[in-house]
Amino acid sequence: MNQSTVPAAPIRGGAAPAEAAAGKRRRYPSVIPGFGLTLGYTVMYLSLVVLIPLSATFLKASHLHWSELVAIFTDRQVLLAFRLSFLASAEGALINGVFGLLAAWVLVRYEFPGRGLLDSMVDLPFALPTAVAGISLCAVYSSTGWIGSRLETIGIHVAYTPLGITLALTFIGLPFVVRTVQPVLEDLDKEVEEAATSLGANRWQIFSKVILPALRPSLFTGISLAFARSLGEYGSVIFISGNMPMKTEIVPLIIVSKLEQYDYAGATAIACAMLILSFALLLAINLLQRWSSHRAKTR
């Protein structure tokens, strides 16, 4: 770690003693350099890549006439897609709310062989490309697939039905719930549970009256994150859904098919609706997180 070969740049370190001498007033700039450069670059890159393209989309949609918008959003096919997207995302998120909480609980509280492996596998839906997840889920749950063929014999069809969409969205949402609940569960003070036990509470009472209230904000956050992600999900769904008009079309698919038909106005309008929706969800999730960190502090 010797960099005597590096020519010593003229040093402006004199600012630091001056700051110390000036006492408590912190009007002097920080001794750490590069604020203007890094902030300028950050804001410029953010604007070019994210903010300008997103605003351009809203600007494009603003050219649409009200009657056009009404026509787009009262189209039966679009309405059914929104309904399906909402329902399937909500179902997936709620399934994860139950089983994700259970998985987080088991991974934090219990010792069993393979726990470490299972714990790191939870992130697989983040790491696995969505198209890969899509084709493999479709292959497993189709009527010729490993699980699909068995379910078929008892009359349950998964592939090419709304159930398949729920399944794909459950896969996608899994890490969100587990990873938001897990750290809170790890930090939970066991002494509170011991106190409750010594006061005569049984295990179920402790879980429902002590543990669950403490986990609630993070659980809600995880469920909403999974829901938000599921609404926009495309790659893992389109293979297993079969994309039958009015039956198994999700909203992102509608956008793609409108684009393929060169219906730019329709695609833009629906995209803007989805953007507004996801920003509203983002805001709600931020508030939720503030609530949960506030709770963590007051506890």
Binding site: L54, A228, G232, Y234, I255, T268, A271, S278, F279, L282
Partner: peptide, 11 residues
């Protein structure tokens, strides 16, 4: 927060 499809569409 943006759907992948919408991310492509903006460009």
């Amino acid at each position: 927060a943006v759907s992948p499809v919408v991310s492509g569409l903006v460009f």
